[in-house]
């Protein structure tokens, strides 16, 4: 295994926000975050340039990016950026699930003794759900469930994160990537769409 990374650049464009963060030896030294449902392809790389400049770093040792589940276009923007940077810097790229990043937004005290059920809007009838234990260990993979199935699954003891106003944040993604590096639980930098492509013929101008 390669040496533990000193600097991690994290990116996120997979839900309804856009963010970049630079983590260095245990803490976030620069970050940018903005709520947006579209426009990530304009905003993301300028954010990366800003956090690098602010942290006075040329390049990181590891790139982490959210790979879904989430908005397909946003997932691709994050991955295209992360993989392009990884290619040009010759730096490895690690995937982090959006569900994982949302579960990790809870403090360890809030999580104590409880399961966390993360439920994301899929823009269809179903929702994308992943369950974690109090230490953020996944108990299920991210998968599609109908609302009544989620009700049946979640107990009163569980924390259910199903507020569609919650946003993933690269600052949390960076810390998760450091943990995932040690535990070797990082995901490949591939999209987690959880749904095949909708087949509709294109409209041409």
């Amino acid at each position: 295994m390669k040496a533990f990374p000193k600097r991690i650049l994290a990116l996120d464009a997979a839900t309804s926000a856009c963010s970049a963060a630079l983590w260095r030896e245990g803490r976030i030294v620069a970050c940018r975050f903005q709520v947006m449902t579209r426009g990530q392809s304009e905003a993301l790389l300028p954010m990366v340039a800003q956090v690098l400049a602010e942290a006075e770093e040329d390049k990181p040792d590891l790139i982490a990016v959210t790979v879904g589940p989430g908005a397909f276009t946003g997932i691709r923007i994050g991955l295209a950026a992360a993989r392009g940077l990884g290619l040009a810097w010759s730096v490895p790229v690690m995937g982090i699930a959006t569900t994982h990043a949302l579960a990790a937004s809870l403090t360890p005290i809030a999580r104590q003794g409880r399961r966390i059920v993360v439920s994301l809007d899929s823009k269809r009838e179903d929702r994308w759900v992943q369950v974690f234990d109090q230490n953020l260990i996944p108990l299920t993979p991210p998968h599609s469930l109908m609302p009544d199935e989620i009700l049946a699954l979640a107990t009163d003891q569980d924390i259910v994160l199903d507020d569609d106003n919650l946003h993933t944040d690269a600052a949390i993604v960076a810390q998760l990537a450091a943990d995932a590096w040690l535990a070797e639980t990082g995901l490949p930098p591939q999209p987690l769409y959880l749904r095949p492509a909708d087949v509709t013929l294109p409209t041409r101008s």
């Binding site: 790389l45 390049k59 950026a81 992360a82 392009g84 940077l85 040009a88």
Partner: peptide, 10 residues
């Protein structure tokens, strides 16, 4: 476009 920008930046 995003891939191109990322490579240009890096």
């Amino acid at each position: 476009a995003t891939m191109g920008k990322a490579i240009a930046l890096a």
